[in-house]
Simulated assay, not measured.
Amino acid sequence: MSNTKYILGSFADPDDMMHGIEKLQANNISIYDCFTPMPIHGIEAKLGVKPSRLPIAAFVFGALGTCLGFSLLYYTMAHDWPMNVGGKPSLPLPNFVPVTFEVTILLCALGMVATFFFRNHLFPGRTPRVMDLRASDDRFIIAVDAHENTDHALVESLLTDAGAVEVKYNERKYVSYE
């Protein structure tokens, strides 16, 4: 077995890359990932990417913020230090709404950012890694896993027929910027 891990097809045009995806999928060749310098409409559906579950995390963090905000106000105003100010109740629910709302928004936003960074492995100190250095500049890259697709000549011919400017074999998993 060779050291080749990925076969990279480099395209100069996004339409050629989309045509390359269609050709590979028509021949039952699984695509590892696509790397583009700009967003391309419809590529997620073509690759079969599942929708993000970030809204679920947002709801969970928002519910946690609501519970924590209300619990903090209840504990401080009604349980720990109840004060009788002008005969008003110790648990004035309408007065709790602004603080509870703000804590909900704060924890929801911070929780979504933390979840996004954790899920995408974007933590401080990590070196940026890409398959091909030109993928962030002007090239559209299709990465095909070489271990799952053993007929490398077929993959290379399909990529070149679709309009690939360059087809290369990547022996390392990623190329570092350093």
Score class of each variant (00 low, 15 high):
residue 57 A to T: 11
residue 151 D to R: 05
residue 139 R to Q: 03
residue 53 R to S: 14
residue 150 T to D: 12
residue 157 S to K: 12
residue 7 I to P: 00
residue 43 I to N: 02
residue 26 A to G: 14
residue 35 F to S: 08
residue 29 I to S: 05
residue 159 L to P: 15
residue 96 F to H: 02
residue 63 A to K: 02
residue 151 D to Q: 05
residue 116 F to E: 00
residue 93 L to V: 07
residue 154 L to K: 12
residue 41 H to L: 09
residue 148 E to R: 15
residue 120 N to R: 07
residue 23 K to A: 13
residue 55 P to H: 09
residue 13 D to I: 10
residue 2 S to I: 07
residue 79 H to S: 13
residue 123 F to Q: 04
residue 141 I to K: 03
residue 73 L to V: 09
residue 2 S to F: 06
residue 174 Y to L: 11
residue 167 V to C: 03
residue 171 E to Y: 14
residue 144 V to Y: 00
residue 65 G to N: 05
residue 137 D to H: 14
residue 145 D to P: 13
residue 70 F to V: 07
residue 13 D to A: 11
residue 14 P to S: 02
residue 18 M to K: 09
residue 154 L to R: 11
residue 127 T to S: 15
residue 123 F to S: 02
residue 4 T to R: 01
residue 19 H to I: 12
residue 161 D to R: 07
residue 135 A to K: 14
residue 21 I to Q: 12
residue 62 G to E: 10
residue 170 N to P: 10
residue 7 I to T: 02
residue 130 V to Q: 11
residue 68 L to M: 05
residue 110 L to Q: 02
residue 11 F to T: 09
residue 86 G to K: 08
residue 69 G to M: 10
residue 5 K to W: 06
residue 103 V to K: 05
residue 71 S to I: 15
residue 153 A to C: 06
residue 138 D to C: 05
residue 13 D to H: 15
residue 13 D to T: 14
residue 33 D to A: 06
residue 51 P to A: 13
residue 19 H to T: 15
residue 1 M to H: 07
residue 161 D to E: 12
residue 143 A to E: 06
residue 150 T to Y: 01
residue 73 L to P: 00
residue 82 P to H: 05
residue 137 D to K: 15
residue 65 G to D: 08
residue 120 N to Q: 09
residue 42 G to R: 12
residue 1 M to S: 13
residue 75 Y to D: 04
residue 141 I to V: 04
residue 125 G to M: 01
residue 23 K to N: 08
residue 59 F to A: 12
residue 129 R to N: 02
residue 72 L to E: 00
residue 137 D to T: 11
residue 124 P to M: 02
residue 167 V to Y: 03
residue 89 P to D: 00
residue 70 F to A: 15
residue 142 I to G: 04
residue 57 A to E: 01
residue 28 N to C: 03
residue 129 R to M: 08
residue 16 D to Y: 08
residue 57 A to Y: 07
residue 83 M to E: 07
residue 3 N to Q: 08
residue 94 P to V: 01
residue 136 S to A: 06
residue 39 P to G: 02
residue 96 F to P: 01
residue 14 P to F: 12
residue 12 A to H: 14
residue 54 L to N: 09
residue 51 P to S: 14
residue 107 L to Y: 08
residue 104 T to A: 08
residue 128 P to Y: 15
residue 174 Y to E: 05
residue 88 K to S: 00
residue 85 V to P: 03
residue 61 F to W: 12
residue 53 R to M: 13
residue 79 H to L: 15
residue 109 A to W: 10
residue 91 L to W: 01
residue 144 V to E: 00
residue 11 F to V: 05
residue 68 L to C: 03
residue 38 M to A: 06
residue 146 A to L: 07
residue 127 T to L: 15
residue 41 H to M: 10
residue 88 K to Q: 01
residue 49 V to F: 07
residue 134 R to F: 06
residue 153 A to F: 12
residue 50 K to V: 15
residue 22 E to I: 07
residue 71 S to C: 12
residue 48 G to S: 00
residue 150 T to N: 05
residue 70 F to S: 11
residue 130 V to Y: 12
residue 132 D to Y: 13
residue 40 I to N: 13
residue 58 A to L: 10
residue 4 T to P: 01
residue 143 A to K: 08
residue 152 H to W: 15
residue 68 L to W: 01
residue 5 K to H: 10
